[in-house]
Each structure stands twice: as structure tokens, then as C-alpha cells.
Simulated assay, not measured.
Amino acid sequence: MHEDYYEEKLDPNLAALLPEGLRVEKVAAFQVSKPRFIGDIGLRGFFQLYKKAKRIIREEQIDFLYIPIPSFYVALLGRWLHFSTGVKYGIDYIDPWVHHFAGSDRMFSRHWFSTKLSSFLEPIAVKRASLITGVAEGYYGGVKDRNPHLLEKAVFGAMPYGGEMIDYQKVNTLSIEPYLFRRNEKFQLVYAGAMLPKAYGPLEQIFKVIADHPQQFSDLEIHFIGTGKLANDSNSFNIKPIAKKFGLWKTVVFEYPQRIPYLDVLIHLRAADGIFILGSTEPHYTPSKVYQGVMSGKPVFAVLHQESQALKVLQQARAGVVIAFDGEAGLDTISENFSATFEQYRKFVKEFSTEQVDIGAFEQYSAYAVTRQLASLIDLAVEKNS
């Protein structure tokens, strides 16, 4: 979609990260109506995307169409374009589509309608798909359960986000300074990115320990960036109410709900003493944030499900300290071990050197390796459905 039609704040620096000579096609979209009836960019530009994609597929003999979601509505383009052109297509589940939110069981609520609509549209979109991917199997596992016919005709593959060291090198060429917080005498950690739906239980355990040991954590600051309910709302706090509940707001815990540009995130990671990674009570947490934290050159403190792939990679890389817990049943493990483990982490930070990190442990999550994996999956999907 053309950038003029997005509601979110744009990040022009991202364009500088694209390879030279990369061809980018853009289409228009319908403007957001007043009152705001349809806001989703994928829905507002759906027909424009279809028209241009159909022309390119036919004129240039495109073999495969790969559609990342969200926006979830654009997944329907695959089925429609397959019908009109015969092109094979795949869908990448960056987020699960059919998702039961808190409140989904309350009839006629917003979440109820959302779950019903996604349950209706997803089978239509994936019916002729040749490839289904996601950052971890947990993101698309339900697709196989709901659409068992895909097991015979489609290829499935877990493919986490890749990290690119060039991005961090690019940061050094930009005149961007951290603006959400300033360096001081405190021990500062940064958590950057959205909160996972089932990460609040572990977070409450952590906040409770910090509140119960005010002397031990008197010098600690944790800065949560981009954790709000809405990407562009600076007041859509998710962390603040929990921090206030434990008396930590604006003393230990700080939240900046609004999303900030990608390169700005990297600047703030580099400005901190360490990176805070928080998983959830579900095991399918991928190493993408861990990889990002390690490439920032900062030691990582992580609280992760014991079956998380991120835990194993972080330990192999010798890049941080981890508390592992066993889902909902193991939340007490966090409160029992947090205080002592955090002191281990302080010592780890003092002795930390980037030279001790085994970056090879992350090789499979590099942008190059992940792209190679995607190319192999597409080849398999085309061959299986030829």
C-alpha cells in the first residue's frame, strides 16, 4: 500500500535498509471514513491490491504468491488470485488469525464478533494454499487442526524472524539519540515490543518480588517501549496499571505505550544496561527478540517458558541469564528464583563482553538463513502442488 494511506506514523529510515535495486510496487487505498467504519489498511486497499497483483502475475508469469498476515483480510487475496490466475500461494502467520481473546465468549462483544469472523474467513483463505508458515509452529498449529485437508496438499514450516547485523551498523550512521529516557546512575533495562497475551501472569510475579524487596531493587529501572493496547495511542497503557498495583510506577517501572520506529528501538536498546525479555505461559516463543537484544551488544535477562526455543538459544550463545518456568503451573518458580537470579545477572553484566557471545548459535536466525529456509519451503510447495 502507498504510504499516504496508512494511519500509523511512518518511519522513513526503514527505506534506507532496503537493498539497492529492490523493486517496490505501491497501490492506493480508500481513505478512512468518518465516522471510522473501516480502518484496516488491508481491507481499505483490498481491491486495489488484487487488481495490481493480478496484472503482475499475468504479465510476468509469477510462480508463487507469498502473503504475510496481519492484515488478515489480505490472506483472502491468495484464494481469489489462485482462482483467477492459477498462481500458487502461501500465507505467513506473523500472528494467529483465529484467536480467542479474553471476552471472546461474551456474545455480541467486539472480541466475540472478531473470533466468529476469523473462524468464517480463515477456511476460505487457506483452502487452496500450498504453503503455511509462522514464526513458530504454535502460530499456525490451529490452522492444521481446523483445516485437516491441508495436511495432504500444503507444506508447513516454522520460520522465525531473521536478524540483520547491517541494521545495527546503520544505526551508527544516523543522528538519533534516545529520547524516551536518559542515562543516569540507575540500572536500566529495556523491554521493547508488544506484550504477549499470556505474559501478564509472569510479569505480576516479577513485580511482586520487586515490590517485596525495595532495598535490593532501589536502583532498578525497567523501561517498557511499544507495549500499549494501540500502536499509535500514547495513553493505551498495558503495564502502568500493574505497576501501580505494586507501587512501582515511575520509580522502577516506566511505560511508553506508543510504537516507535524500528531504528529508534535499536537506539534505545543500546542506551540501556541490559535487555529484558519476557516470554509467556505458552511455550511457542521464538528467539527473534533475543536475537535483536544480543545484536544490540547488551546482556539479556530473560524469563521464559522452559520449552521455549529462545531459552535454549540464549543459553547456547552465553548471552544472558534466564529464569525458566513451566507454564501456568510453574509461575511460583519465577517468584522463588527472581531475586537470586537477578543478582547473578548483575554480576553477569559487570563481567560481560560481546566477545564471549557465540553468535553462531543465532546463525539459523540470521536474515540470510531465514530467507534461504523460506526459498526452500516455497520450492517444496511448488513441487508438491505441480
Rank of each mutant, 00 (worst) to 15 (best):
L18W: 01
V27A: 01
V32C: 06
K54E: 14
F37S: 13
L10V: 10
G21R: 05
Q31N: 14
E20G: 13
G42K: 04
G78Y: 02
K54R: 15
D4V: 03
D4N: 15
L10A: 12
L81D: 01
Y50G: 07
K88R: 14
N13T: 09
L77H: 04
F46G: 05
V87C: 02
R36P: 11
K34I: 06
G39S: 15
W80F: 15
D92V: 02
V32L: 12
G45T: 01
D92W: 08
V24C: 06
L65G: 00
A29K: 03
L77S: 05
F46T: 00
A53N: 07
R44T: 02
L17I: 01
G45Y: 07
L17R: 07
A28V: 09
W80P: 04
L10H: 15
V87P: 00
G21W: 12
A16R: 10
K26G: 00
E8L: 13
K51S: 14
L18M: 09
K88Y: 06
I69G: 02
R79P: 10
E3N: 11
L14R: 09
P35V: 08
K9M: 10
Q31P: 10
L10D: 10
P12A: 05
L18I: 09
D63I: 00
E20P: 05
R55D: 07
L18C: 00
F30D: 15
S84W: 11
R55A: 14
R44G: 06
Y89W: 08
L65K: 02
K51Q: 10
Y73K: 11
H82F: 13
I69V: 15
P70M: 06
D40R: 11
E8P: 04
A29Q: 05
G78V: 02
L43F: 10
D11A: 13
F64Y: 03
E59I: 08
V74F: 09
L10C: 01
F72T: 04
P19Y: 09
V32N: 05
W80S: 08
D92G: 03
V24L: 08
V27N: 06
L18F: 05
R44M: 06
V32A: 13
E25M: 00
I38W: 10
G39Q: 15
I41E: 04
R44H: 10
Q61W: 01
P70I: 00
A15D: 08
P70E: 08
K26F: 04
L65P: 00
T85K: 09
